[in-house]
Computed example of a mutant assay.
Amino acid sequence: MPMKLNVGDIVQLKKVHPCGGDKWEIMRTGIDFRIKCLECNRQVWLPRKKLEKRIKKIISQSEQNEQ
């Protein structure tokens, strides 16, 4: 079963980005996810399966997820 991830969620990945950041904001969801590094603002597209494997923890969830 897929993880419950929404636009605006902040996640921490297992691997550190070359800029030194490991926190990412989810910009787009679906089969492919677009995530943005909160350190350098670089955007990356990843398939859902790869992203779910790389997530260490969900730091904050968007407000629409909490309601």
Rank of each mutant, 00 (worst) to 15 (best):
P2W: 03
M3N: 11
M3C: 08
L5T: 01
L5Q: 00
V7C: 09
V7W: 04
V7G: 03
V7T: 10
G8K: 07
D9A: 04
V11H: 05
V11M: 11
V11T: 13
V11K: 07
V11W: 09
V11S: 06
Q12I: 07
Q12W: 00
Q12P: 00
Q12A: 12
L13A: 03
L13N: 01
K14Q: 07
K14S: 06
K15P: 00
H17P: 00
H17F: 06
P18M: 10
C19S: 03
C19N: 02
C19F: 01
G20L: 01
G21S: 04
G21T: 01
G21D: 02
G21Q: 01
W24K: 00
E25L: 11
E25S: 04
I26V: 12
M27G: 05
M27H: 09
R28F: 09
R28A: 12
R28G: 07
G30T: 00
I31R: 14
I31F: 10
I31C: 11
I31H: 14
D32G: 08
D32A: 10
D32Q: 09
F33D: 06
F33M: 06
F33R: 01
R34A: 12
I35E: 01
I35K: 05
I35D: 00
I35G: 04
K36S: 07
K36D: 08
C37I: 02
C37Q: 03
C37M: 04
C37R: 03
C37W: 00
L38G: 06
C40N: 10
C40I: 08
N41I: 02
N41C: 12
N41K: 14
N41M: 14
R42T: 11
Q43H: 13
Q43G: 12
V44M: 14
V44K: 10
V44G: 02
W45Q: 11
L46G: 08
L46W: 10
P47V: 15
R48P: 00
K49M: 14
K50L: 15
K50H: 13
K50M: 12
L51W: 05
E52I: 12
K53A: 12
K53H: 13
K53G: 13
K53Y: 12
R54V: 03
I55P: 00
I55R: 01
K56P: 04
K56G: 08
K57G: 07
K57D: 02
K57T: 07
I58G: 00
I58S: 01
I58R: 01
I59H: 07
I59N: 02
I59F: 09
I59W: 10
I59A: 06
S60P: 00
S60T: 07
S62R: 06
S62L: 12
S62Q: 07
Q64S: 15
Q64F: 11
Q64D: 08
N65P: 03
N65W: 14
E66L: 15
E66A: 11
E66D: 05
Q67D: 14
Q67S: 14
Q67R: 11
